[in-house]
Structure formats: C-alpha cells, structure tokens
Design a protein around this nucleic acid. Structure first.
Lengths: 240, 240
DNA sequence: CGGAACATTGAGAGGGATCAATGGACGTGG
DNA sequence: CCACGTCCATTGATCCCTCTCAATGTTCCG
C-alpha cells in the first residue's frame, strides 16, 4: 500500500514525552533514531496490520487515530481500543509471531515503524529502554483490566461517561481542550467498544444532553458538567 | 505472613515446559536458578499481593489457584482472571511500580518469587529469556482481548460455555481430564469474571445440565458434550 | 448439631436489544 | 451548484434477557 521511507528523529519529535523516548539519555536517543528509520502512512479506513499478519514491528502513532478490532471465527468482531498520537500498536503480535487483532485508521494517520528484533537488541544494551518497553506492555495490561471492569460491571450510562472521560483526558495532555472534542469513531464503533448497541449509545448521548451534562451534535461533543460525568461513573449500586 | 525461603531449581521443576524456562539453554537455566531463590506459600483466601502494594517481583504459580481482582474507588470490584500452575502473576505492577490489582489464592498455593530487577538484568544477557518475557506479557494482552470480546459481545450462555472451555483446556495440558473438573471458585467469582450475577451463573449451569451438555453438582463439573459447548460459543447472531 | 457460606430455584421488574422509520451530513457526479 | 445516494445518527415501540428480591437447599466445619 502506501509505504514511505522517510527519515525521522525521535530526538526532535514533538511526541517524545509521550512515546518510546520518555526518559532516555541523549546517546540512547541517538541509537533509537537509528532504530526508527521509517514512517508509514495509513489512509482513513486503511489497515496498519490485520489479524493473522506476520509480526515484525511495533508501531508508534505519530498522527491520526486508530481502532483495534478482534474478530472471532464466526465473524463477530469487537473494537478493543482506540489509539492516538504517542501510543504504541502491535504488542499483541509478539506471542505468536502474528497479529491477533487488526489496526484500522479512523483518519489519515502516520506511524513510526519499530522493527521488534532491533528494539529487543537495543533493549539489551540500554536498561532504560528495556524498562520502558516493559512499562508500555504493563500499561496495556492495566488499561485492559480497566476495560474489563467497565464491560463487566457498569451500566450503559456509566460506560459512556467513563468513555468520554477516558477519551478527553489523553487529548487534554496532548494540548487539546479538556471539555471539547470531535469523535473520530462512529456510534457503532463506540458501541462495539463499550459492549452496547449503537442505538443505546445514541440514546444515552441524548439523555446526557437533556440532563445538561454534555452538548452533542453528531461527532462533536462538549462536556458541560465534568463532575456530573464523574459522578455517573462512580454511581455504584452500593451493595457488592 | 507465611514467607518461606526454600531453595528450588527451575531446571528440575516439572512446570518448566509451561513457565519461564521454556526453551532456555542449560547454562541460561542455571542462571535462572540463581534468580529464583525463594518460594512463597499463600494460604487459601490469602493475598499474594494487593492493589497499591509496591511492585518488586513477578510470581510464577507453582501450585494452587489464584484470582486477580481489580477494585474501583467506589468499592465495586471485579475478577479479571484466574491463574493456575505455570502462569505468571504481577505484570500489572510494572508501569507504576505498584500493583493495580490484587491476587488472592483460591486454594493453598505456592509461588516462585522472581525479583523483577534481576529478571531484567538477566534478560539483557540472554535474548532467549528476554524474548520469552515479552511473549508472556503479549500473551496476557491477547488473553485480555479475548475476555473483552466475551464481555462485550456474548450472552450469558455463550460466556459460560467459553469459560468452561477456556478453563478445561489449560487443565488438560497440565495432565488433568479434558472433561471433568472441580471448580476452585464460587458462583459469585465466576459471575464477577463473566460480568453476570451469581444467580444467572447458577441458572445457566442448570440449563446446560437439563440439555445434557454438562453434569454439575456444586463445584464438580463434567462436560458431556464438548461439541455442543463449542457450538454455543460460536452461536453468533449471523448478522453484523 | 448448628451455623455459616455457598448454591439452587422462583417470581417479577427493568435495562438494553431489536425492529423500524426518519432525519441529517457528506461527497460525487450530472 | 444542486440532486442524489450513501453513510451515519436519532428516535420510537416492543420484547426479552438478565437483574433483583426472596426463599429454600446443600455442604462443610467448629
């Protein structure tokens, strides 16, 4: 597909505080620059990798927005995550040397390609990098636990409230508003991620709007009352 | 609590085909034996580590059976996994240097303590070990994706059928029956893991029994018709 | 033997799914 | 530039699966 070979440098990347280079020393950063020699562009709707593809590299999102999707043998599928700039994709491929999910761009995107064998090699030289790779994988595990909690024990309102808060937070730490956003995914994709039907997503959005908690117009969402949203997430049923 | 210091050797462990030592060379195995110098016993109901505890080590289950539980600020909690002999616990702690979930023994258990800094050190020397650690973490991520799929898109019957199959499979590869098992967890714990209430778990068990698919008596479960169970898991609603 | 913890089963209620129709946004081509 | 088709979102009406509340049964252990 659209494969480009563009020289880039982690050391001058404006995402270095969010991505792999976190906390690396200058000489380590230089080595990393050698590792990451290519970028790759993915058009909206295009797949970065598909389930079953051989695993060779991790990918760091430079720009754009992705979803990851798992598919069962019987054709049922589910969105397992959304990834934005600075996040790492492809960790699922390591175990079996092939990817177990697909990564699809929700808008035109660009990623840094990190050949995994080289990353392992470099990790053996620099313990800082090694530990950072471990942290990235652990972070993914912890995040998944959070999603399991959401799917397993929250009702529709709580799920959607948690979703909005979990989405706006990383956006804010990337310099965007903490109250406004334009969703990059459809109601169906949100529903797939949250384990509910698209109609329920839409209805819940409308209910939040009626209650004055948010303002929604299609993909545009504005959080009017963050505290109310947070209260909805924490509205456990007190028993347990 | 019950902390013992017992000399053990991976090289002579009957779990070495399932645990860390997979595929290590003799000299690497010897180094690993030096790393893993202690075991720890955990009584039934005891916690191996609790959410918030500082992270120092991973744990390899030698015997017994664990559950991992995440708890929200508001007191709601959820079982995120069950672990048996050969599995690795504690990966959640790496990101923030503290554990984000608790590991509780469902029966008297024993684990090997793997100090993580030493494991990282050894990983830098032996690429086989390094890659194996990466595989273990990736496996955890892939497994979690499977649970998310289950929680997000399956109905009660499908969840429980998948649960039984996912439980008996690893038991079988450890030398146990592929049709019979004694559950180590309560109906409530199963329900928590599967995102359903304990009554629904119980009712679904009963329904499976009425249909001649399984035989259940309290904790004892016997799979009479594995194909029927598999068919239930794959009974997607054909649309989508 | 009695109590506590766990499991089963029933009846009723409710939240979300399903089916269905309408409406709005966007892009393409006439 | 408007018309049209497609994709996506909203909203309504109804149904059903699972939750909830409640009672009874079973196992295990002090």
């Amino acid at each position: 597909m659209d494969l480009h070979s563009i020289k880039v440098a982690c050391s001058s990347c404006n995402l270095r505080e969010l991505c792999i280079p976190v906390g690396l020393k200058p000489d380590e950063m230089e080595q990393l620059d050698n590792l990451i020699s290519t970028r790759r562009r993915v058009r909206r709707g295009g797949t970065l990798f598909a389930a079953g593809d051989g695993f060779t590299s991790l990918y760091a999102v430079r720009s754009g927005f992705f979803k990851t999707v798992v598919t069962t043998a019987d054709g049922r599928d589910q969105v397992t995550g959304f990834q934005m700039a600075g996040e790492i994709l492809g960790l699922d491929g390591i175990v079996q040397d092939k990817h177990s999910c697909s990564a699809v761009a929700l808008e035109d995107a660009e990623v840094c390609v990190l050949p995994f064998d080289k990353l392992e090699q470099l990790s053996r030289e620099f313990s800082t990098l090694q530990h950072h790779v471990h942290r990235i994988m652990s972070r993914e595990i912890v995040r998944d636990q959070g999603v399991m909690l959401l799917l397993g024990s929250m009702r529709a309102e709580e799920r959607l409230a948690a979703f909005l808060l979990n989405l706006v937070q990383p956006l804010h730490s990337r310099g965007f508003s903490r109250t406004e956003m334009v969703l990059r995914m459809t109601r169906e994709e949100i529903g797939s991620y949250l384990g509910m039907k698209l109609e329920t997503v839409s209805r819940t959005f409308s209910r939040f709007q009626d209650e004055g908690i948010i303002e929604v117009k299609q993909r545009y969402v504005r959080i009017l009352d963050p505290d109310a949203l947070a209260a909805i997430v924490n509205q456990s049923r007190e028993e347990n």
